[in-house]
């Protein structure tokens, strides 16, 4: 039996009167690729931020990789994010005045110590071996997103979170990024949670959940792929 890497019961997050996430029960088995869909404001990012330890729930229980996130201190949560989570956003959040390699090394630095050789090989793995010394401004959107992927996986996370990572990309770049992610996942065996608006992108996953107004309304398992 595969253990659940994520397990929530009654997970709730409200901002004052607004209840962004109504009590939610989800289990995600280790190694699964889960797509999260739903219209704007339905609580997808809220869910992801909770799972990634970027935000704390208002109520309910949340265990990720065996850690009870509610019980962790701020330091514990920071360590959890550092060692357990890789995140890719729609906006790339790369440091504009650092080169691609330096951006990856920065993630190494916050995790432990920088290692340039390893950072280079990570960029080579995402097909950017020829763009190591370029700054984000000199890279295309798809290339930037691949730098983000290299940065997200450099510390060998067990859980990779993507919040609409392909939202700004054209069709061709989207396919390239998704293929890259699939390839990396088959090598590194991390779990993926991917928030998207795009049905086609969601279809790359093993399973799709649909949120509506903070409520889980549908939970579909892909039958092919």
């Amino acid at each position: 039996m595969i253990a659940n890497i994520i397990q929530t019961t009654g997970l709730t997050r409200s901002y004052g009167d607004i209840c962004a996430l109504k009590p939610l029960d989800v289990q995600v088995p280790e190694g699964e690729w889960l797509s999260v869909m739903g219209h704007s404001g339905s609580g997808k990012s809220t869910f992801m931020n909770l799972v990634g330890g970027l935000d704390r729930p208002s109520a309910g229980s949340l265990s990720v990789g065996g850690e009870d996130l509610l019980a962790l201190t701020e330091d514990g949560l920071a360590r959890f994010r550092r060692e357990f989570i890789g995140i890719i956003f729609q906006q790339h959040h790369l440091v504009p005045y650092l080169t691609a390699v330096e951006n990856v090394m920065m993630a190494q630095y916050f995790h432990s110590v920088p290692d340039e050789a390893e950072a280079r090989s990570a960029l080579e793995r995402v097909g950017l071996g020829h763009r190591l010394k370029n700054r984000p401004g000199e890279l295309s959107g798809g290339e930037q997103q691949r730098v983000c992927i290299a940065r997200a996986i450099i510390n060998s996370p067990k859980l990779l979170l993507g919040d609409e990572p392909t939202g700004n990309l054209d069709h061709k770049s989207t396919i390239m990024v998704m293929e890259l992610l699939r390839e990396l996942r088959s090598e590194e065996r991390f779990t993926v949670i991917m928030v998207t608006h795009n049905q086609e992108v969601a279809a790359w996953g093993d399973r799709t959940i649909y949120l509506d107004d903070g409520v889980l309304v549908r939970d579909e398992r892909a039958n092919s792929r």
Partner: peptide, 14 residues
């Protein structure tokens, strides 16, 4: 073998 693990050990040592 794993880079992250390797770096973590180094960081702890330092």
């Amino acid at each position: 073998r794993q880079g992250a693990e390797r770096r973590r050990l180094l960081a702890v040592f330092i």
